[in-house]
Design a binder for these strands. Structure first.
Lengths: 166, 166
DNA sequence: GATTTGTATCTCGACATCAAGATAATGAGG
DNA sequence: CCTCATTATCTTGATGTCGAGATACAAATC
């Protein structure tokens, strides 16, 4: 029969609630489970560099922005899609770890510019190198053709939520 | 160019770290974002029935099991993939809400059987009906052929983490 | 320049989660 | 029937998250 965990759940619903068509549950369920496994694998990789997923998210955003690796809190909020309370908490921890510093924003007395420290720069560069290698391992179960097909399908679906221009 | 948010992130990495091949990041990133959007949509649906995603998870597991809608805490742990501390917390809240009750397990004096109450049964039946309809809306962006292709690809990939027999 | 409105960031309180360790009951061997 | 390893569940402490509201500065208007 080749039933995975998601198929078993669907079979249970079919037995208990035959009035429901649970087809979409398979697609959504597998996608959700896969996302969880991948997030777990990422977290383990980040942890080897002393980073949480939350910390990686912020440091990577600063690193990707290019020199001088500094963004306003507002910019970080827009990119990372967390609330301001969450960002304050993340920055407090990263600052305590010496990976970022808050500098008053010369262009706006209300706010700060958040900048990677030397240590933060070194940490994120090492972490992302490892992270990318890890991602290559994680997708190795699919060949190039399968991965391209999956990319296309995910892209199509994602536009429902994010629009075609991001 | 038709760049979505994930493509923009990849482009930034290509500029800042051209030594890295970030192809897999697109696949994994889109999958992760999609999962987040779907989880958000689910949570909103559950909330209309007074349930959190965590509460839905537990009540649905009990409901799917069939009459008498009772499982040991151990069984719930195995199915829901959370830690025992998390499950204790979930059960405390569901019990306080009158949706489940803990009954001493007659077959093992150390443990409990967790059972849906009448109210819990009514709540989960209403919630799952709505939930399934919601899932149909969420997958509507893909036609049947696309959804089947996606199912197959996700299934292939998922076996890396869960094995082919669940 | 005083008032109003808006914006950037932080504070606070409520939850959810995990990991590690505590508690308590079972069962196997002697 | 003790003792010991095992198992089931709960407790505790650290993180991470959100939402609502506070604070502080800026910009626009009077």
């Amino acid at each position: 029969m080749d039933m995975d965990q998601v198929d078993k759940i669907k079979a249970q619903w079919n037995r208990e609630r035959p009035d429901l068509d649970v087809g979409p549950m398979g697609t959504i369920g597998r996608l959700g489970r896969l996302a969880r496994h991948l997030a777990q694998a990422h977290a383990e990789c980040f942890a080897t560099h002393g980073l949480s997923p939350a910390g990686f998210d912020v440091l990577a955003t600063l690193r990707r922005a290019g020199p001088p690796h500094a963004l306003t809190v507002k910019d970080l909020l827009a990119t990372t899609m967390v609330t301001s309370g969450t960002m304050t908490n993340r920055l407090d921890r990263l600052e305590a770890a010496g990976q970022v510093r808050r500098v008053p924003n010369p262009e706006d007395g209300r706010g700060f510019v958040v900048q990677l420290t030397e240590r933060g720069r070194a940490d994120i560069d090492a972490a992302v190198t490892d992270h990318v290698a890890n991602q290559h391992r994680l997708v190795a179960a699919l060949n190039n053709e399968e991965r391209a097909a999956l990319d296309a399908l995910l892209g199509t679906w994602l536009t429902v939520f994010e629009g075609s221009d991001g």
